Computed example of a mutant assay.
Amino acid sequence: MTRETHESEFEVVRMRVRPQFVYVRHGKTERRKSLLVQARRRKGADSDAHMGEGFTATKKIGNAVIRNRCKRRLREAARVLLPQHGKPGWDYVFIARKDTADIAWPRLLDDMESALISLAAD
């Protein structure tokens, strides 16, 4: 696993294998116009040591160029917002929607921020 540190006291670790994504799928979900965010508390001894982040875009979104653009935009938005609004010990999966590629950047940030705040409140 590649580890990325952000401007906080905990690490954000990239999730890359399917079982990690499947585990998060059975957690909480928040839907917005430009993205869908899934979150689930991790079990285990190191559960509070870091947060997990994963990004996905299905073929329904468009061709490879559009899917990659969506994931790049989601990665950058998560880099900015996840350390502020995410909870240590939780894994987050960000799923692109059709509007992710073309929506205005401030709107994408607002959608992600409101979804993360809603997930943290539960």
Results as ranks from 00 to 15, higher is better:
residue 7 E to R: 09
residue 7 E to Q: 09
residue 88 P to R: 04
residue 50 H to K: 11
residue 119 L to D: 05
residue 89 G to F: 10
residue 8 S to V: 04
residue 117 I to W: 09
residue 48 D to W: 05
residue 101 A to K: 04
residue 44 G to M: 08
residue 98 K to A: 13
residue 92 Y to S: 05
residue 33 K to I: 09
residue 12 V to E: 06
residue 122 D to Y: 15
residue 105 W to Y: 12
residue 10 F to A: 02
residue 91 D to F: 12
residue 37 V to H: 01
residue 42 R to N: 14
residue 21 F to D: 00
residue 14 R to A: 10
residue 79 R to L: 01
residue 1 M to I: 09
residue 11 E to R: 10
residue 2 T to H: 10
residue 64 A to R: 07
residue 29 T to K: 14
residue 43 K to A: 14
residue 119 L to S: 03
residue 4 E to H: 08
residue 54 G to E: 01
residue 12 V to S: 06
residue 22 V to W: 01
residue 23 Y to V: 01
residue 17 V to N: 12
residue 25 R to M: 08
residue 111 D to I: 03
residue 87 K to L: 14
residue 57 A to D: 04
residue 11 E to F: 06
residue 93 V to I: 12
residue 105 W to Q: 07
residue 59 K to V: 04
residue 117 I to V: 15
residue 116 L to K: 10
residue 103 I to H: 04
residue 26 H to C: 06
residue 15 M to W: 03
residue 14 R to Y: 07
residue 21 F to M: 05
residue 22 V to T: 15
residue 110 D to W: 04
residue 7 E to Y: 06
residue 15 M to Q: 07
residue 56 T to Q: 02
residue 45 A to T: 14
residue 11 E to I: 03
residue 76 E to C: 05
residue 42 R to T: 11
residue 108 L to I: 04
residue 53 E to V: 07
residue 16 R to Q: 13
residue 54 G to I: 05
residue 118 S to C: 11
residue 3 R to D: 12
residue 66 I to P: 00
residue 55 F to G: 06
residue 9 E to V: 04
residue 80 V to T: 12
residue 8 S to T: 13
residue 40 R to Q: 15
residue 119 L to H: 07
residue 2 T to V: 14
residue 62 G to H: 02
residue 53 E to T: 04
residue 53 E to L: 06
residue 1 M to Y: 10
residue 81 L to T: 07
residue 63 N to T: 01
residue 99 D to G: 01
residue 84 Q to T: 11
residue 46 D to K: 15
residue 100 T to G: 08
residue 21 F to H: 10
residue 4 E to M: 09
residue 3 R to N: 12
residue 47 S to E: 14
residue 18 R to E: 13
residue 117 I to P: 07
residue 13 V to W: 11
residue 10 F to T: 06
residue 118 S to T: 13
residue 80 V to S: 08
residue 114 S to L: 10
residue 88 P to A: 05
residue 52 G to M: 10
residue 54 G to R: 00
residue 93 V to F: 03
residue 119 L to K: 08
residue 88 P to H: 06
residue 36 L to E: 09
residue 84 Q to R: 12
residue 29 T to W: 00
residue 121 A to H: 13
residue 16 R to K: 12
residue 34 S to A: 15
residue 116 L to R: 11
residue 113 E to S: 14
residue 90 W to N: 11
residue 107 R to M: 07
residue 84 Q to S: 08
residue 83 P to K: 03
residue 54 G to V: 07
residue 91 D to S: 15
residue 10 F to N: 05
residue 120 A to H: 11
residue 70 C to A: 14
residue 77 A to T: 10
residue 74 L to G: 04
residue 57 A to R: 03
residue 74 L to D: 01
residue 48 D to V: 07
residue 102 D to P: 03
residue 66 I to Y: 00
residue 98 K to Q: 14
residue 55 F to T: 00
residue 73 R to M: 02
residue 21 F to G: 01
residue 40 R to D: 08
residue 115 A to K: 10
residue 79 R to P: 00
residue 27 G to V: 10
residue 19 P to W: 11
residue 67 R to S: 00
residue 115 A to P: 08
residue 41 R to S: 13
residue 59 K to P: 01
residue 21 F to Y: 15
residue 52 G to Q: 10
residue 78 A to S: 13
residue 49 A to C: 15
residue 83 P to W: 03
residue 122 D to L: 15
